[in-house]
Computed example of a mutant assay.
Amino acid sequence: MELKDRLKQARKHRKMSQARLSEATGLDQTTISNLETGKVLSTSKLVQIAHALDVDARWLATGAGSMLDAAISPDAELIDTEIIEGNEPLRADEVLLPLLREVEFSAGQGATQVIENHGAQERFSLPRLARAGVQPQNAALAVARGDSMMPAIHDGATLGIDKGCRSVIDGKIFVLDHGGMLRVKRLYRLPLNRLRVVSDNSVEYPEETYSLSDPDAPKVLGRVFWWENFD
């Protein structure tokens, strides 16, 4: 059985159309069609396809094992943290994500900026990304500081960020670059191109309002789709 046959078998088992698989993986529907007809023999997104179809990635890529070995059930229980520890090589269901951090522009200036990567990366679960509908190329991590989002997000919690979602969705949590400071807040749209910035710990951190045309307004870096929980 070739890749084209395994892909078609898995998609039909999942009862998913080519169009829906295209949405779930970010692949063009024509590419999926070409994979199923054998016009295209491989793709770098085989792992994402496997997780979207709830089949074993190794089976899909090579035919080894069986289709449902290590598959992720749609009803699988989510665990609190899915950052992968250790220095061993990446598994097929892991990806390295950049870590957003504050850094100084240059020594002595005292000014900071939020950058996507400064050599720092963390291993993260591809099934977690698939369940959240986040494409790996749009994903990043950050670390929450302070208690402004307590009790939902604790100080030191790792956050999963979807950089592909920067349009404000009322009540959702976003990561912001505010004058070089990395902030985590709930956002709400207001008339006249204004923005409410709200902390869950509103007693100690009153809400703020900004005009998006103001050069001092925070810049939305992405929506928080996951955060680490603590006991």
Rank of each mutant, 00 (worst) to 15 (best):
K4S: 12
L7K: 00
L7H: 04
L7Y: 03
Q9T: 14
A10K: 01
R11C: 05
R11W: 08
K12W: 04
H13C: 08
M16S: 02
Q18M: 10
L21M: 04
S22F: 01
S22L: 00
A24Q: 08
A24I: 00
T25K: 01
T25G: 00
L27A: 06
L27C: 05
D28T: 06
D28G: 10
D28F: 04
Q29N: 03
Q29P: 11
Q29Y: 03
T31E: 09
I32V: 10
I32T: 02
N34S: 09
N34E: 12
T37H: 06
G38S: 02
K39I: 08
K39G: 08
V40P: 00
S44G: 10
L46F: 05
A50C: 04
A50M: 04
A52I: 04
L53W: 03
V55M: 10
R58M: 11
W59F: 07
L60C: 08
L60W: 05
A61D: 12
A61N: 04
T62G: 03
G63F: 02
G65M: 04
M67R: 10
L68K: 12
D69F: 01
A70K: 14
A70V: 08
A70L: 11
A71G: 14
S73F: 07
P74Q: 07
P74I: 09
L78W: 11
I79K: 15
T81M: 09
I83L: 15
E85I: 11
N87M: 13
P89M: 03
L90G: 03
R91K: 13
V95C: 01
L97I: 14
L97D: 07
L99A: 11
L99W: 13
L99R: 11
L100K: 06
L100S: 01
L100Q: 07
E102P: 06
E102H: 09
F105I: 14
G110Q: 11
Q113L: 13
V114Y: 08
E116A: 12
H118S: 15
H118A: 15
Q121K: 15
E122V: 15
A130Q: 12
A130M: 09
A130R: 09
Q135I: 08
P136C: 00
P136R: 01
P136W: 01
Q137E: 12
L141F: 01
L141Y: 05
A142Y: 06
V143G: 09
D147V: 05
S148N: 03
M149R: 05
M150H: 11
P151E: 03
L159T: 12
I161C: 05
G164R: 02
R166G: 10
V168L: 06
I169E: 14
G171I: 11
K172W: 06
I173R: 08
F174G: 02
F174Q: 02
V175E: 03
V175I: 13
D177Q: 10
G179W: 07
G179A: 05
G180L: 06
R183N: 04
R183Y: 08
V184L: 06
Y188V: 05
R189T: 14
P191I: 06
N193V: 10
N193K: 13
R194M: 15
V197L: 09
S199K: 08
D200W: 09
D200V: 12
S202N: 10
S202D: 13
Y205D: 07
Y205C: 06
Y205S: 07
Y205G: 04
Y205T: 07
D214E: 09
P215W: 09
D216C: 11
P218I: 03
K219T: 14
V220G: 02
W227Y: 15
N229R: 15
F230Q: 13
